[in-house]
Amino acid sequence: MRGRDLAALLFLAGLGALLASVMAELGFGNPPLRAGGPILEQSPSQVGAANIVTSVVLAYRGMDTLVELTILFTAATAAGMVLGQGTRAGRSQSPAGFILSTAADALFPFLLVLGAYIILHGHLTPGGGFQGGTILAVAFFLPLLAQPNAGIDERITTWVEGSAGAAFLLIALAGLAGDGFMAPFPGGELGELLSAGSLPVLYLALGLKVGAELAGLMGRLLTEDEA
C-alpha cells in the first residue's frame, strides 16, 4: 500500500524534525545532576555499594525495581493465561542435533556459575539480579532447546518465582520498621563481597525470581502446540 507508506514517511519526517529541533535545545554532556549529584556524593555513606548504579536501582529507586519485577511476574502470569490451556502435544518435536545437545550439556555448569557470579557481585561490578537471572534462565533453557520433550517443571519455577518475589517484598516491608519502606540496611565494608547490607540479598532474590520466571516462560513458549 504505497499511499499509506508515504503518509507514514511524511508523518515520521515531521516528527523527526520536531524532535531534532527540540532536542537541540538540550545541551549534551552537562546534565543538571539535581538527583544524580547528591547520589554520587552520598551513596557510599548511605548505602555502601561500590556499584553506584546498583545503589540507585535497589535503594534510591528501589520502588521502581519492585514494580519492575512485578511487571515481569505479571507478564509471565498473563502469558501463562494465554498459552495455558494449550495442548501439550508439542512433544512431537524432534530432539536437536549433535552440536546443540553437546554444547547445551557442556555450557550448563558454566552458565550457572556465570549467572551466579553476576548476581552476587551486582553491588560491586556491573551486573545484578536481572542480568544474572537472565543468564540462569538461559542455562536452563539451552538443554530444553536440545531436548524439547523434556519440558520445564512448572511447579518448581512457580514456587521459586513466588517465594523469591515474596522474599524481595518482605525485605522491602521490613524497612518499614526502620526508616521506611525499602530502606537499605547497612553493613559490611565498601568493596567487599559482604557489603551494602541488604542489597546483595535483594539481588539474590531478584536473580532467582527472574531466572525461574524467564525459564518457565521460555519453556512454555517452546512447548506450545504448533499446528
Partner: peptide, 8 residues
C-alpha cells in the same frame, strides 16, 4: 521511600 530524601 526508604527514608532517602527526594530528589535522590
Amino acid at each position: 521511600l526508604g527514608g532517602l530524601p527526594a530528589p535522590m
